[in-house]
């Protein structure tokens, strides 16, 4: 369970998120929807404890991110907007390094890397250096890195952004598996079709504020339409 309460954050006096609050339950995929600049990445960075909110609280699996960031991070796997990889290291080296930072034993790490490699279809690249990887390959490595410690809470920042069909399908299959395993998944996106097929809960963010939240049906009802894209445009105030 991930819970945000009345979270505020400004940069140099300019508010980036205002009074953001929502909760994401276990066994569900919660979609965080918003236009560019809505505050999605800022919200996710606050979730990961990378940015300290000016006000408000964030709880991950019962751990207060501000008070006990390490306990919160242990149960959180976050795929950041920046998929940054070391060009001179292989995916396997990335994953072993991440695993050791999460305190996994080498044997447990190797087992986990093997499983992720199969699940994400990375067998062909696992021992190649990351320089020159395609966007899809980079996202797979970054996602595997975020999941290497088998976290209960998974937060993905636009995971399929810029990917081809094959990579997109692999990522979506992964999200469904995580959901079936009863994990708490939060996914930011602006691809309506993806949100519709993966998410049961929605949070619509615009101008740093939560404009609507609830099940897909609740959000559609609030906007008075049966088309998600129309609902999004209306609720995000983009129809003006």
């Amino acid at each position: 369970m991930i819970r945000l309460e009345d979270v505020h954050k400004s940069f140099g006096g300019r508010p980036a998120v205002r009074a953001v609050g929502f909760s994401a339950g276990d066994g569900t995929v919660t979609g965080l929807l918003g236009p560019n600049g809505a505050g999605k990445t800022t919200t996710l960075r606050i979730l990961g404890g990378l940015l300290r909110p000016d006000r408000g609280e964030v709880h991950i699996g019962g751990h207060d991110v501000a008070r006990d960031p390490r306990a919160a991070r242990r149960s959180l796997g976050l795929l950041p907007d920046a998929r940054g990889l070391h060009p001179r290291l292989t995916p396997r080296e990335h994953l072993r390094f991440a695993a050791s930072l999460y305190g996994l034993s080498p044997a447990a790490a190797d087992q986990r890397i093997e499983a992720l490699s199969v699940q994400l279809g990375m067998a062909g690249i696992i021992d190649r250096r990351c320089r020159g990887f395609s966007q899809g390959e980079r996202v797979k490595v970054a996602l595997a890195r975020a999941l290497v410690h088998d976290p209960m809470h998974v937060v993905l920042d636009e995971p399929t952004n810029g990917l081809d069909v094959g990579a997109t399908r692999a990522i979506r299959a992964m999200v469904r598996t995580l959901k079936e395993q009863g994990r708490c998944v939060v996914l930011s996106s602006h691809v309506m079709q993806e949100v519709k097929s993966l998410c049961s809960q929605l949070v619509i963010l615009a101008e740093g504020e939560v404009k609507a939240a609830g099940t897909v049906d609740e959000v559609l009802a609030q906007a008075g339409t049966d088309d998600l894209e129309d609902a999004f445009v209306t609720l995000a105030g983009m129809d003006a």
């Binding site: 990378l50 976050l78 920046a82 060009p87 930072l101 975020a146």
Partner: peptide
């Protein structure tokens, strides 16, 4: 290369 973010996300 923006690899710092994922490093700082570790406990």
């Amino acid at each position: 290369r923006q690899s710092l973010e994922s490093l700082l996300l570790t406990p």
